[in-house]
Nucleic acid binder design. Sequence first.
DNA 1: TAAGTGTACTATTATTGTTAGTACAGTTTG
DNA 2: CAAACTGTACTAACAATAATAGTACACTTA
Lengths: 129, 129
Amino acid sequence: MFELDMRSRKPIYEQLVDKLKELIINDILKPDEQLPSVRTLAQELTINPNTIQKAYRELEIQGFIYSVKGKGSFVNPIDMKKDTEKMDSVKKELEKLILEALYLGIPADDLIKLIKDLNASKGGGESND
Amino acid sequence: MFELDMRSRKPIYEQLVDKLKELIINDILKPDEQLPSVRTLAQELTINPNTIQKAYRELEIQGFIYSVKGKGSFVNPIDMKKDTEKMDSVKKELEKLILEALYLGIPADDLIKLIKDLNASKGGGESND
DNA sequence: TAAGTGTACTATTATTGTTAGTACAGTTTG
DNA sequence: CAAACTGTACTAACAATAATAGTACACTTA
């Protein structure tokens, strides 16, 4: 389920946060789906449960999951009304990256196409059935 | 010239890298323009010259500046032929952020407009004279 | 009660960020 | 050559952080 780079300078818990965010964003982990428990995942990855918990706690702060004592941790369904702050911060990050891309000489049209493609693959997967 | 947040968890040298990248990308620091020397900037910001050097070294690795012993550090003119690797990595980062933005419910049209605006403000500043 | 969940601690070690100081190599100006 | 500037490369020390290890507690489910 995960591939961690123990030699990386990037902390393990940050790698975990990134991976899990990716799985959630790509809808591989569905809303309200239960994540592996801190102890289970720690055993699978042969790392310490505290490190898992740190990642889960961070994901909870960022609003991607929620945890219930005695039950487990679950994917948090997005709430567009509550998530305006996060939308703003993501937009700011996007601005910086877009400016960098333009600075490097990537055509604006390429970036626009990138968005269109990603947007299409997002909703497009539901055409079958 | 700079505003550093000493209380931030983000290392000072990383803040410096970000600020300088921003100045370069926004064309405030022009190609081949000389940056302040490590000692001068360290004195201005009342931080250690080693920290400045760490930032400059990182910027050199990333291709934004070049340094010449005895002369100084300078903004590196971009070379679209050489920078294909960096373009690819920026595109990958952009993909992740765009997916997150779409996941949060930001309309694709908003993102496209963002690109168009940034692209216009980039070249648009040269119409007057 | 037992076994599973998340959570909260303490302690310890390794790594990293930052400062401080010294030194060396190259450039420029006199 | 000398002086004053540049970048660069070290060592040493301290503070903060990442990660492990271990223990304990609260809650849920069977």
